[in-house]
């Protein structure tokens, strides 16, 4: 299991491949479910030029570790990876990577879905958008 909050940009597919090589036993998992969230250039009707992501250091990592452990208890998941950006982002930058590995796809999908939904509704991150007209805090996440 790996939880990381990172200031620098990351490439999610490289991260998944590197983690698989490092942490997973070849042949043990028949399924990997991966979610990647990427910054969009539009928010409602407004064009977004950039975004700043803040978090509550310490609480974030604690919360993400707890939900990863919960996912591994609730489903027969072999491993889980959560990587989340903070700092200054541009449209197209990956924001979050969530991956869950299991013997079969149903458990991998369920665990991955649980992790991203809990992260979006409970993990202490906040987005501040830079629009042409100025800056604004995002006040709520999209429902799905």
């Amino acid at each position: 299991m790996k939880i990381e909050v990172r200031e620098q940009p990351f490439e999610p597919w490289t991260e998944v491949a590197a983690y698989e090589r490092k942490a997973l036993k070849p042949g043990a998992c028949g399924a990997a479910a991966v979610f990647v969230g990427t910054m969009r250039d539009m928010s409602g009707d407004d064009r977004v030029q950039a975004m700043r992501l803040e978090h509550y250091a310490g609480m974030t990592e604690k919360h993400l570790a707890r939900i990863a452990e919960e996912a591994m208890r609730r489903w027969p998941v072999n491993d889980a990876l959560i990587l989340h950006r903070v700092g200054d982002l541009k449209p197209g930058d990956p924001i979050v990577l969530v991956a869950a590995w299991s013997a079969h796809r149903a458990d991998a999908f369920a665990a991955c879905r649980f992790l991203i939904e809990d992260l979006k509704s409970r993990a202490p991150f906040w987005k501040k958008e830079q629009l042409e007209a100025g800056v604004r805090w995002v006040e709520e996440n999209t429902p799905g």
């Binding site: 969230g37 509550y56 609480m59 604690k62």
Partner: peptide
């Protein structure tokens, strides 16, 4: 850890206030 706003604090506690979260 998330807590209710009516929860009592103890010496040395850290209490944080923040808006709804918007990560992911």
């Amino acid at each position: 850890e998330y807590a209710g706003r009516g929860k009592s604090l103890a010496d040395g506690d850290e209490v944080a206030f923040f808006p709804p979260v918007t990560g992911g």
